[in-house]
Structure formats: structure tokens, C-alpha cells
Write a protein that binds this DNA or RNA. Sequence first.
DNA 1: CATGAATGAGAGTTCATTCAT
DNA 2: GATGAATGAACTCTCATTCAT
Lengths: 207, 207, 207, 207
Amino acid sequence: MSAKVVDKQERRDQILGAAIRVFARKGFSRTTISDIAAAAEMGKGTIYEYFGTKEEIIHHSFEFFMRHLEMDFEAVLISKMPAVSKLRTIFDGFAGFIDSHTRQMMELMFDFWSEAIKNKDTKGAIYTEMKKFYKAYREIFADIIIEGMGEGAIRKDINPRSAAAAIVGALDGIMVQWVLDQDEFDFKDVTRTIGISFLEGLLSERT
Amino acid sequence: MSAKVVDKQERRDQILGAAIRVFARKGFSRTTISDIAAAAEMGKGTIYEYFGTKEEIIHHSFEFFMRHLEMDFEAVLISKMPAVSKLRTIFDGFAGFIDSHTRQMMELMFDFWSEAIKNKDTKGAIYTEMKKFYKAYREIFADIIIEGMGEGAIRKDINPRSAAAAIVGALDGIMVQWVLDQDEFDFKDVTRTIGISFLEGLLSERT
Amino acid sequence: MSAKVVDKQERRDQILGAAIRVFARKGFSRTTISDIAAAAEMGKGTIYEYFGTKEEIIHHSFEFFMRHLEMDFEAVLISKMPAVSKLRTIFDGFAGFIDSHTRQMMELMFDFWSEAIKNKDTKGAIYTEMKKFYKAYREIFADIIIEGMGEGAIRKDINPRSAAAAIVGALDGIMVQWVLDQDEFDFKDVTRTIGISFLEGLLSERT
Amino acid sequence: MSAKVVDKQERRDQILGAAIRVFARKGFSRTTISDIAAAAEMGKGTIYEYFGTKEEIIHHSFEFFMRHLEMDFEAVLISKMPAVSKLRTIFDGFAGFIDSHTRQMMELMFDFWSEAIKNKDTKGAIYTEMKKFYKAYREIFADIIIEGMGEGAIRKDINPRSAAAAIVGALDGIMVQWVLDQDEFDFKDVTRTIGISFLEGLLSERT
DNA sequence: CATGAATGAGAGTTCATTCAT
DNA sequence: GATGAATGAACTCTCATTCAT
């Protein structure tokens, strides 16, 4: 009666997974639909049963990417530990977050950044999502910092949102360097240093 | 003859300048040779008198990009001021470095990052240059930090190279955020906060 | 078994009816099998249970089309009225033949004409059928004219087959104009005028 | 200094001429850009230097078609001869108008008719042009008929516009039959018969 | 030297057709 | 028998590159 039954959502994810793998290796523009079809082990036409255009695949792969990138801070955030411990825990945990999967994701991130900024003024679903993403991360850190200020552990003469931006930037920034030159990096030591720098400062003595 | 050579170089730069402007707006792949020719106000064929392929233009535009991006730390570095002052001067000056020209450059940076990483294993002139670029910047900061350690102003229990990576990352990272969402940023305050955070730490008291 | 056969034929007609509706709206080439399946309210695969190819559907839809287009002159033809009355009756009745259904059919006719002529030299089932169709119509009119000549009512210095061709052409031709520009037409008056023109002539007096 | 110089308009016409030849043989939908390029003896890409889309080629080929189809009645129309002579001249001349070139044009006409009607409700440049074309032709004949009425040569109890529609339709209609079945036709005799029928009527005697 | 008309390889996309369910 | 997911041939269109002028 009915034809072959497939889980449409699963199939879409299968395609997006394949797409992301190829995108990470070749970039959006050099990736062809044929490439994606080959990676997903299906015919070129099948791709179009699930996505209308290549553009659409790129957009949805960003969602997919985000779904799988999300660092899980949840446990840390809802814990009862003091704010400063939360920060230390996150800094220390960050190194563990880094692996080959993340690496692939970061390589793709460059393309998403580019894509986002290039379509900023038009439709820009990626752009919008990305802004939300960064905003959310800054807010996580800003909240912890404000919490720490309330606890008296963190100095009150700085803007929590600026500090949050600095922290997010630092984590982001070292990932960029790491992706570009893995060999130069003792990731663990760099994150440890970030923890020390941000919290205690680099100076020998407070001035 | 010498005049000819200068002329030739000038023409190349004219093309590269035009290319960079278009690249920043549309990205590498969406930019056509026609676009570049139009922006450079010359014929499509003329481009090929100076560059063999589009690829070559992209590669050389990275050099050109770097030549014009270079933050001038020279004055600070050769000055006699103590290391910590050098760092403060750089952090404070960083906000001034940011302008619409830089913004355009950063939008292009995403493409170069992507391009670099995608050709990492093949030819990768951009990749190599980029690694050198980051290494150089890290070394500048590492040198200052080591200098500061020698002066006794900077704590000796951290790895200067890791700290340098952290600083470069932080500066890079906030630029990414700024480019993606200019409105959310008080750039001056964020760089000020980076200075405070890194040097004095966020804690109320040293533990 | 007989029931099955009837059922099968019914299903084929269901498909052809749907096909014709879509063909009339979008033309052969822009109509997809999916369109037809949707219009026939069945699955795409089911279509192929009844027809081997899209081509075959087009061919059979011409038969179907002809079966439903057929103007019923039968009653007029077998009646005992004089030839000239037969012609007048047909001319007068022609306006009544025109309705929205006919309109749709005529829109399709353009496609069949095109299809016929394009396959003239190859297989050309439609071409053959169409030639037969026109020939038959011309013969109907030629027979009436010959009959009228026999009755002495119609002049004998013309070729009945040429006159028949002219009549069929005129009826065909005004349908084309009507389909292309319904608003410009008082169909009833035009057919009345055709009757007058052809029979009595446009001249005030015979020369 | 400047590159190859070509007459752009000439090149466009070269393409349109080739397009029409292929269209007439294969129909719009079965004609590929490659076909047209081959017929025009140029590369596929060259076509796109002159026309943006296949659609555009179809539209412009209609203009081109019309430009080359136009029957030249001018001489007849401006002549001093009486209206009835004008009609006779046109009817007699019509057979001469028919040749292999016209045949090819008529084969294409089916496609234009179909195309026009299918895009009636959307953009429909062809549709609009075609309506104008028929309207113009009807007006030519209506004017002659009115002139003839003024001269007292043509009866006044018919609507000139309806008669004009009938004449245009008859000419159109016999062309359709001729294109579909050349062998059945003594074109000269049919046009002669049309002249006789329309002017003097088929009846032996006026009733 | 400068140019832009010409080109075809190659990309995205459509859709008739097949076939496992 | 009925279905629609899967497929790839074939089509439209783009654009880096060439080369006659």
C-alpha cells in the first residue's frame, strides 16, 4: 500500500551530518551537491527531496552545527558552588571540550562567520542566530560575574558585560589560534593561564 | 625600465586593493573577476596581465591585506617604558585601532581564515603566512611579558607564551564579536576591562 | 474479471482527465507526472501502472480529448433538411458549442497542434489522428455542399472540398481568436456573419 | 586597445534566427540552449552574453518572428483601387505568401499560441503582442469592408468587425490545415474559393 | 599593453522513471 | 495493486580563462 518508509528527520540529519563533514574540509563554496550526496551515500537527487537549495543546506547545517557544538555548562551553572569556582571549573573544563570533533566544527565556524557577515544586511538567518549565540554566552559569564560581585569575591569596578565579552573573546580567540596551529599549543596550559590571568592578574603585586 | 616596474607594481596594487574591497563585501567565492575588474576600473583581460589566476589574486591579496592591517606597535616596543606600561599602552591603544577600515578587513579575515585552514595540507601560502603572523604577535607579547618578569613586575609562575596566546586570543576574540555585533559593544570599555582583567585580575583580593 | 477491466479503463480515464486538466493549464512540458498524480488524487507510482511513459499519456490524452471534443453534427447530418439548411443550422449551432469547457480544450489544442507537427516525421500518432480529424470534418462539409449542388441550391463553379476547407478553417480560425482574446468577441455575431458571408456573400449585388 | 568588435544587434539576430529554426523543428521545451548554440555556430556561453535566459530568447524570438512574418499589405492598402478589389487582391496574393519559410513560421506559431495562452495571466508579453497582432489584422479588413460599404459595394447588414474576424479566421484556419496536411491542399484553389465564398457567397441565387 | 567577446567545464536543479515496501 | 523515496540523466546558467583585435 504505502511505499518505502523512512524517518524524514533522520534522513535530513544524515544529510546535514555529511554536509558538515564536507563543508569542514572544503568550505561552502567548493563543496558541491555531488560531494554531499557522495558523503551521505545517496543520489544527488535525493538531497533535493529533503532540501530545496544548497543555500538551505548551509542554513540548516548551522542549526545542526549549533545543536552539536553546544558546550554544556548547565551542570556548572545550576550548582551551588561560588561564582569564582564556577569560572575556574569552566576554564579548566574548556581544554577537555577540545577534540577532533570540535576542531572540525571550528574549521567550519570560519565559513559560518563569513557567511553570516556577508548576508548581514539581507536575510541573514545565520547572522541572527550567531548574534544570539554570542549574546547568550556573554550573558552566562556576565551572570556569574555579577553573582561573584554579590558574593564579594569579584571586584565591582568593572563592567560585568565587558568582562564577559573579554572572557568569551579569549576562549574564542585561543580556539582560532589552536585550530590554525595545533602544534604550537599546550591547550591545557593556555586555558590554565587564562584562568589565572583573568582572575588573579598577571602582576606580581596589585598596584 | 625602472619606471615600468614601478608602474607594474602600482597596477598590481590597484587590482589587489579593488579585489579586497569586493572580497570583503561578497566573499571570495561570490566575487567574480568581472567584479574585480569593474572595481579596479579596468578590463577583465587586463587583470590577467598581472595575475595568472583568481587563486593567485586571493593569495596575493592576503599579503596586501597584511601589509595594510599591521598594527604599529613598533614605537611602543622600542620605547624605554617598563613592560607593564607597554602592555597598558597597547591595550589602551587597541580601541583606537578599530575603525571602519579595520571592520572591512576583519570581515575579510573570516575568509582568509577559512581559506587558510582549507588549504592547510596542500599549498597553503596563506596558511603559512597566517601561522607566522600569529606566532609573531604571540612573540611580541611573550617578549614583553618576559621583560616584565625580568623587571619583577610580572609573576613568574605562568608560561609567558601561554599568556601571550591568551592576550592575542582575547584581542582577536573581541574583534570577532565586535564585527558580528557592533551595537552590543563599548569597545573602549571592553579593552579597558581586558587590561584590568589580565593585569590585576578580576578578584577582589588575591587568594 | 470483466469488472476489473472496466475498473482499469475507468482508472485510465481518471488519469487522462486529470492530465488534460493540468495540460490545459500548464502545457505538456511544464506538466510533471507529480502534477498529474496530484490532480488524479493518486500516487505518482500508480500512474505508471496504467501508462508506461509521459509521452504515452500525452498521446492517449489526445484520444481522450477527441472523444470529449467531438461536436455532434450527427442529428443534423442524417436529417432530411436541405443542404443549405444543414449549413445554416451548423453555423447557428456553433456559437452554442462554445463554453468554458471548450475553451480549456482549445488551449490544449495548441499543444496538440505543436506536438503533432513536431512528430510529423517520426511516429506521430497524434499527427495521423489529427489529419484524419480534419479530413473527416472537411468531408462532412464537402458532402453537404455536394448535396446542395445536387439540389441546385449551391453554385457548381467551386470545388466542394476547397469550400469545405475554407469553412472548417473559418470555424477553427475564429476559435483561435476567441481563445486568445475572448473580450473582443461577440461569438454569436461572428458565426452569424460567417453564415451570411459564406452563403450569400458580402457583396451588395452579385457581379 | 579595444577588444574584438562585433555588431551586438546583428549577433542577437543571428542567435534569434538560429533559435527560431530549432524551435520550429523541436518546439520550445525540447530545444536546449546547446541546440541553439550549435545552430548559431557559437559556444553555449556566448548565447548568454546576449540573452539572460532561455525564456528571454523565446520572448525575443516572437518579436523576431513577427518582424519576419509580417505580410505586406501596405501597397494594397494605400492604393486607390476600390475596397472589393483590395480584398480580391489580398485573397489572390495570399497563396503567394505561402512558402517553406512561412511553413516553418507556422509550425512555430503553434508554440507561440500555446506559450501565449499559458502565460496569459502572468507576464505574458507574447500574449499581449499576439492580441495586438490579431486586432491589427482585423482592423485592416474591417477598414476595407467599411470602405466598401461607403462605396456601396458591400452590404451594410453585417458588422464589419465580425466579417473581418471571419476573414482573418478563415485565412488563419486554412494555414493550420495546410501546415498539418500539405498534400491535401491546393492552396491556390482554396484561397480562390475563400474569395468567391466570402464575396459572392456559395448560393446559386440570393434568397 | 588593454580589452571584452567567446568559450566550455562544471555547478545547481528538475523530473521521468524505477522499485522496495 | 498502490505508493512515494530514490535516482541520475539532462538541462539551464555561471564564470574563470583565452585570445583576436
